[in-house]
């Protein structure tokens, strides 16, 4: 075994205002898949329980926040760290055609899945251009 420092995948800190406590806020890694029915967002938020996830949609901006429950094994001290722990936050600007009432969110194994169905009335409308 070597004494080289192992390079692990880095967690990206979120851009934006700092926290008052100085704690880090991370940007969850996200997969976004579009289907006929709508858009599915898959966000990695390890350490976040379902009840600690906060999803809001305001002025077309979808904001996802997750509060981490820190891991602290009893009577043990951190001896070597490759990753940091902190809350997760990320925001996306959506197009207008999603129904905020129908957004479905579920958490499994630290992964949040958001399903945004396309609004029925948002089906493309053709506007006839009249010649004057």
């Amino acid at each position: 075994m070597s004494n080289d420092v192992t390079q692990t995948a880095d967690k990206t800190p979120a851009e934006g205002p700092e926290t008052t406590t100085g704690a880090r806020i991370y940007r969850p890694l996200t997969d976004i898949i579009e289907t006929e029915e709508g858009v599915t967002l898959v966000l990695e938020m390890p350490g976040v329980a379902a009840e600690d996830v906060d999803v809001t949609l305001e002025q077309r901006v979808l904001t996802i926040r997750g509060k981490v429950r820190p891991t602290q094994p009893e009577k043990l001290q951190l001896a070597y760290a490759e990753y940091g722990e902190g809350d997760f936050e990320r925001a996306f600007t959506l197009s207008d055609d999603f129904d905020p009432e129908k957004i479905d969110a579920s958490v499994a194994n630290g992964v949040l899945t958001l399903t945004l169905p396309r609004a029925a009335e948002a089906k493309p409308k053709k506007i006839a251009v009249k010649a004057s």
Partner: peptide, 16 residues
Amino acid sequence: PVFPAVNVWQGDEAVA
């Protein structure tokens, strides 16, 4: 990069 990143905790009675 190596996956997963690990944190190691140490104490008198155990290692986590």
